[in-house]
Design a protein around this nucleic acid. Structure first.
Lengths: 204, 204
DNA sequence: CCTACCGATCGGTAGG
DNA sequence: CCTACCGATCGGTAGG
């Protein structure tokens, strides 16, 4: 019976986390109260504190679960795809799927990092850096001439993530443009830009 | 003498606004207290309320002054430059100059819109939409084939602003890459992507 | 799992 | 009378 209760515990905890993610996304971490989270869960404030030690622990959970799935998805593609051009397109597509399916978590991840204490923030930032480093390696495979220009590579990788991450401010998964099209447009611009600025026509 | 006092009033008011912008950017609107703003201004809370009716009015001022200068800069280029390709490059460069020179205002504009009441928020959003509409017209000048595909144009314009606006999360004006280079990279990718996806080779 | 609370701090305002 | 400004404190609400 203890196992059954534990399973139920994790399930309720996750439900609280997802409800909190929605409120944190809409009102901000500081703008959303624990009482509001409890009300949205149709339960009491005390129940929330039974599942989480603090409001901040819920925030960490929202961010950590999401950033981990992003890094994992990219790693999987990196390991199973050889062509660096296809890597870019597949990673963009996979990230957009995860963004569109977890809009609240994505908004919170991008907007509320400052509300974590340094030690927990660095855990999240580490995972984000894994994603950036992975894309940096992919970029280097496409543009080996940039081997000694890390600052420029960093800027280029940030353009890629800029196009994708900015979608949280405007993209509507229910709208006329599908998230797969957004991924195609972003990776298309990224690759076209890399090709056009390359020293030789070795790209393509 | 009344004129001299009025001039001093505006000057002090602006100093408060810029100090508040820095705190709002670092700690968020809800995370920064009026007491902190006063302390950072080396004055009292009451003095702050002498210059602004509320904490929220300061927020509006921070956003409004910034978004207006962004829209104005783009409008000026739009009116004085004929070549749509050059328009893109010049607007990107002008926006990056304003972003780099007003980092705090830019962060606040992008992160704290939800903390304005609907009526004041719509004033800011209207100015942002002017910028988007302007870029949409420029895009249409480059890619007339997209005349009937507004959703796709919107997505393309958002890629442009995604690259530029995402810089507030990573770009360091004191770093090795200049903001003019960022503008070149972003507009280069945008234009290369437009060219590559065009139905004919009419672009360039 | 709830009601009843706490220490602290919030945005905003009082008298002078 | 006005403005510019201060130290102290208001009523409510936050997380816990």
């Amino acid at each position: 019976m203890a196992r059954t209760q534990a399973a139920d515990f994790d399930k309720r905890r996750e439900a609280i986390m997802e409800t909190a993610a929605g409120l944190y996304a809409r009102k901000g971490f500081l703008g959303a109260s624990v009482a509001e989270i409890a009300a949205a869960c149709e339960t009491s404030k005390s129940l929330i504190y039974h599942y989480y030690p603090s409001k901040e622990d819920i925030l960490f959970d929202v961010m950590y679960s999401h950033v981990q799935s992003l890094a994992e998805a990219a790693r999987l593609i990196d390991e199973t795809e050889d062509d660096p051009l296809k890597k870019v397109r597949r990673i963009a597509a996979a990230l957009m799927v995860l963004y569109a399916g977890h809009e609240a978590n994505q908004k919170v991840l991008l907007n509320e990092l400052a509300n974590l204490p340094p030690d927990r923030r660095s855990v999240i930032v580490d995972h984000q850096r894994q994603l950036l480093d992975l894309m940096d390696a992919v970029l280097l495979g496409i543009r080996p001439d940039l081997k000694t220009d890390r600052p420029r590579r960093r800027a280029l990788v940030m353009m890629f993530f800029g196009m994708l991450n900015w979608t949280h401010t405007w993209f509507d998964p229910a709208g006329p443009v599908k998230n797969s099209e957004i991924a195609d447009i972003a990776s298309g611009m990224f690759l076209a830009g890399l090709e056009k600025s390359a020293p030789t026509n070795s790209v393509g």
